[in-house]
Amino acid sequence: MLTPMVAGGVVFPGLFLLSKNTLQRLPQLRWEEADAVIVSARLVSSVQAIMASTAGYIVSTSCKHIIDDQHWLSSAYTQFAVPYFIYDIYAMFLCHWHKYQVKGHGRDDGDARAPGSTWAVVRGYLHKEFLMVLHHAVMVLVCFPLSVVSPRGPGLAETGNSPASSGRQWG
């Protein structure tokens, strides 16, 4: 179970850093950090969406009875995607922070509660992106643990028979 999680923990932040650094350092590009962060975060989100959709397609087309059957990829991708949700909370904050700085709201006067302080940016981020942060947190803190401790295992719906009791083969 640890291998897919470690892989996800390397792939998503690694792709972000590689993309950001490439956009900033290539002589032909030399993007500003804010632009590189925003585009890199969107690139990683797009890659994750493609991977999740592909995994879903493979699982749904490989199972004869989508409710009753189980596929190894559903379990593996669930574990692989957990680090993405954690990474994405941070990436969304970085994007919000850079957009905040571009708008000229940031101040460096040393006051911890100044309008441009980190706390003000965090509050603004949570206010603006509350549902997305909540969604990511629920995926990591509720859905993933439930899928791991479920007696039927991850990848099975809550209705229907388990593959063992129905005599069906595992996909």
Rank of each mutant, 00 (worst) to 15 (best):
I89Q: 00
G160D: 03
F144T: 01
S150D: 08
P151D: 02
V138W: 14
V138I: 15
V121P: 11
L29Y: 05
K64M: 12
Q24V: 12
H105G: 14
A36Q: 04
D108V: 13
T3C: 14
P151G: 02
F16L: 06
N161D: 15
Q70E: 06
A120D: 09
T78F: 08
G14R: 04
S40E: 09
H105L: 13
S74P: 05
N161G: 13
S60K: 13
W31M: 10
V122D: 04
K99F: 00
E32V: 10
F16D: 00
G56N: 09
L126I: 03
K103Y: 12
A7I: 06
T61H: 13
V39F: 13
T22W: 10
F12G: 00
G124C: 03
S165G: 06
R107M: 12
P151Y: 00
S45L: 08
H65Y: 11
G56V: 02
H136P: 12
Y100G: 04
S62E: 04
T61M: 06
V10K: 02
I58T: 02
H136S: 13
W170H: 15
C143N: 15
S40W: 10
V138Y: 14
S150V: 05
P151E: 03
L131Q: 15
S75C: 08
G153W: 06
C95D: 14
K20G: 05
R42I: 05
W72H: 08
P27N: 06
L29R: 05
D35M: 13
I38K: 13
Y77E: 04
W31Y: 11
F85S: 12
S46N: 13
V47L: 02
G14S: 05
Q101M: 14
P13F: 00
T22L: 07
T118I: 12
Y57Q: 06
I66D: 15
V142F: 07
V59E: 07
H71D: 03
E33T: 04
M139W: 06
Q70Y: 01
A76C: 11
Y125S: 00
A164T: 10
V39C: 11
F130P: 03
G14P: 01
Y90R: 09
Y77W: 07
V59Q: 08
V10G: 01
Q169I: 00
K99N: 07
R107G: 11
V148Q: 11
M51Y: 12
W72D: 10
V44N: 04
A55C: 07
S162W: 03
V149S: 05
W72I: 07
A164I: 10
K103H: 13
V138H: 14
L131I: 08
Q48K: 05
T22G: 07
L146Q: 06
K128N: 13
V142K: 05
I86K: 03
D69F: 00
L156N: 04
L94W: 08
V47K: 00
M132T: 14
T22C: 07
S75I: 08
D111R: 12
Q28M: 11
P145W: 09
C63W: 08
Y125Q: 01
Y90G: 09
A7P: 01
N161V: 10
